[in-house]
């Protein structure tokens, strides 16, 4: 009983992390039609930067949450710069965008290896969240419960931003019909930068939040990117609800697949993606065909 409950909690926790990672990826693809293959790198860089803030290597030691916020801001700025300096020049050239983002992700991986070395870095669970919660015979790790709460809070905040503000309506208008959005006076290029920065920042934040569970290691980016891709294909591009549902689904499929059918874990993970692409290419909640 405990095994199944723990597996369920782990699945929801992992789904929460995936939501933080994939919501930005989905918005970027939905609005800009850019398959941003650096998104896994943003996750990894966020984790590495956060670990540096924690370690005191910069002359000061910060709190875990401060480190997470600082790394998210830094990764957001990096993402916005990449959009402004590189991707803007490749508008309407999807193949070039794929190749450039793939190239940048490989370069980032090398830079991280150079800067932080090849050994995995463990990050301590933040103070006060190292314990467990007991509910009858079941025991739940407190930090994993905290991740679920954080993901839900971010989901609500993002929903409010997208559904209840003029900026959010402009972003959705840009996802619907970017040309017409520009004609009605929406500065879509500014929105691109904001959304790219926001998406990158969320990925960076997720990287640091996930570090106590996943640890940080070379190749973390390439482990996370396919998961974000699967979530977005499953949920649909540009759809926050799709990202949320897709993340939780993949969280379950990934964890249960690893536990019950470890030799077929990737088969179980990618099968839903293949089926959705064939049967419903716009995803479960998306409006656009990938």
């Amino acid at each position: 009983m405990n095994f199944w409950l723990l597996l369920t909690i782990n699945s929801i926790t992992f789904g929460g992390l995936l939501f933080l990672l994939s919501s930005g990826f989905s918005l970027i693809f939905g609005l800009m039609r850019i398959p941003n293959l650096t998104h896994g790198s943003m996750f990894m860089v966020g984790a590495y930067l956060g670990s540096t803030f924690l370690s005191g290597a910069l002359g000061f030691t910060s709190d875990f949450w401060v480190a997470a916020i600082l790394s998210a801001i830094e990764v957001a700025v990096l993402g916005a710069l990449m959009e402004r300096l590189l991707l803007r020049r490749l508008t309407g050239q999807p193949l070039a965008q794929v190749l450039v983002t793939l190239g940048v992700s490989l370069m980032v991986a090398d830079l991280c290896l150079m800067g932080w070395g090849g050994d995995p870095i463990s990050v301590e669970t933040p103070a006060g969240l190292g314990g467990f919660v007991r509910a009858g015979p079941a025991v739940f790790p407190l930090y994993r419960m905290a991740i679920i709460v954080i993901a839900v809070v971010f989901a609500i905040a993002l929903w409010l931003l997208l559904e209840r503000t003029r900026l959010g309506a402009m972003i959705r208008a840009g996802v619907d019909d970017p040309q017409m959005a520009r004609v009605v006076g929406i500065r879509v290029s500014q929105l691109f930068t904001i959304v790219f920065g926001l998406g990158a920042g969320l990925a960076g934040f997720a990287g640091m939040i996930g570090a106590p569970i996943l640890s940080i290691y070379p190749g973390l980016d390439q482990d996370m990117l396919p998961l974000a891709l699967v979530v977005v294909i499953l949920g649909g591009t540009g759809s926050l609800l799709g990202s949320f549902v897709g993340s939780i689904l993949i969280g379950f499929i990934y964890n249960f697949g690893q536990a019950l059918l470890p030799e077929l874990a990737y088969f179980v993970l990618f099968l839903p993606m293949v089926i959705v692409l064939v049967v419903r290419p716009q995803g479960l909640f998306g409006g656009q065909v990938l």
Partner: peptide, 9 residues
């Protein structure tokens, strides 16, 4: 903009 309400449009 079809995913926006009338007011949001």
């Amino acid at each position: 903009f079809k995913s926006l309400t009338v007011r949001e449009n």
